[in-house]
């Protein structure tokens, strides 16, 4: 009995992303107010909330695209105290564990699809061109775009470009994938093909933090959902509970507005 209790302590998984008292200001404007958040390995967390509530900023603080003003950010075994200016090597170590997918895809237009996915593998992981291309082709196959390898991104639809962007991020073997409204710039139909890839990724055990307006994805794919408003976490919990029985009036108002659309 005693032994078992000990084991369960050892076994309890450590969060792979942990934010403690993270705050972010733009001038006098508090975008993020004392955010605390833990994401366990394999967890899929959906972040929803009204426009301007700080969802993108939160994601961008996690991989330090935007420096937070205070608090502690941990990803895997890298911990950054936001008050200090982190050394470059720590930022690299932090970002190495994080893949990011943007609303506007941000592919490099002057490179083929294959090169888009291989470049960073060669430059940051030291893979050879051959190794990198093999991995890229594999990933393209996984997102259903093997035939696009030698095309340029302009020749791909938005949905295809976003799937390529996902493959590009996955190629660096991240521990956690961050998605910032990956389907918001897409027609509903094209959004579906991206969501299908994300659903498959979630099923494969990838840890994901997804800022989204897709309530279906939040409710059916992500284990946890967090609702943000005015830089604060209004609600956090198992997705179904948060979406069906929100505790705060502000969250209810937001969900009503989403459902009325």
């Amino acid at each position: 009995m005693h032994r078992q209790w000990n084991l369960s302590v050892i076994d309890s998984p450590r969060p792979v992303v942990k934010l403690e008292h993270v705050s972010k200001r733009y001038g006098a404007f508090d975008v993020l107010k004392d955010i605390n958040l833990s994401v366990l390995p394999g967890d899929v967390l959906a972040i929803i909330g009204p426009s301007g509530s700080g969802k993108s900023t939160l994601l961008r603080c996690i991989n330090w695209l935007e420096p937070a003003n205070s608090g502690i950010i941990s990803v895997g075994d890298v911990t950054i105290r936001c008050e200090e200016v982190p050394e470059k090597s720590r930022l690299t170590a932090l970002r190495r564990q994080l893949g990011m997918v943007f609303q506007s895809f941000n592919l490099f237009p002057h490179m083929t699809v294959l090169r888009n996915i291989s470049l960073a593998q060669e430059r940051t992981l030291g893979r050879s061109r051959k190794e990198a291309d093999a991995i890229s082709l594999n990933l393209l196959d996984r997102v259903g775009l093997a035939d696009k390898a030698y095309q340029y991104p302009v020749r791909c639809s938005g949905g295809q470009q976003q799937r390529i962007a996902i493959a590009r991020a996955l190629a660096l073997d991240p521990k956690v994938m961050l998605f910032d409204e990956p389907t918001s710039a897409l027609d509903p139909e094209l959004g579906l093909e991206v969501l299908a890839v994300m659903r498959e990724l979630a099923g494969s055990g990838m840890t994901m933090i997804v800022v989204t307006h897709e309530m279906g994805f939040a409710e059916n794919v992500s284990e946890h959902t967090m609702i943000m408003a005015e830089g604060e976490i209004l609600e956090y919990g198992p997705s179904r509970e948060v979406i069906r029985n929100p505790k705060t009036e502000r969250a209810r108002r937001f969900l009503r507005a989403v459902n009325d659309r």
């Binding site: 970002r95 190495r96 943007f102 592919l107 490099f108 940051t124």
Partner: peptide, 29 residues
Amino acid sequence: SSGQWEAARALNLSRVSTWTDIMIPQMTR
């Protein structure tokens, strides 16, 4: 687009690589 700078940073590309692989070829054009 500013998004490309962000993508380069998120992909952990070094400053040199960001210039030589991403920016300069497009600027040249």
